[in-house]
């Protein structure tokens, strides 16, 4: 069964690259431009993994993950956070909120695929 992945990032180009990469590896992707939009896209349907940026307008990644984990339908859904090397504290916050996986920006598309495969194979 195809695994569905939600990509939440305010950068359209990042979404596009990640999406293209993951689709190339056989995943199905859904895109959202910020946390708020991400929650909207979660309509109760099965999502196998969520990739979320931290720093986004409207609703940042941390708050998004907190909301997500409060939703019984998605509390077991793994989340990969996109962090930067300068955001050690964000990483910790993200983990506290329930996002245990992360990929450090800037990343190569292949790195993202590797991280995804570790979680949903």
């Amino acid at each position: 069964m195809t695994k569905r992945i939600l990509i939440v990032d305010d950068s359209a180009s990042i979404r596009q690259v990640v999406s293209t990469t993951l689709q190339g590896a056989g995943y199905e992707t859904i895109e959202a431009c910020d946390g708020m939009d991400g929650l909207k896209k979660l309509d109760g349907s099965k999502i196998n993994l969520i990739i979320s940026d931290v720093n986004m307008p409207k609703m940042d990644g941390i708050s998004f993950v907190k909301e997500l984990k409060a939703n019984p339908a998605y509390k077991f859904t793994p989340v990969i956070m996109l962090t930067t090397e300068s955001q050690e504290d964000k990483k910790a916050q993200g983990k506290a909120a329930g996002a245990k996986a992360w990929v450090v920006k800037p990343f190569q598309p292949q790195q993202m695929l590797t991280a995804v495969e570790k979680l949903v194979m």
Binding site: D10, S11, S13, I14, V17, D53, T84, K105, P106, F107
Partner: peptide, 8 residues
Amino acid sequence: TVKGSAGV
């Protein structure tokens, strides 16, 4: 974002 995407 400019940087992050550039890396990609």
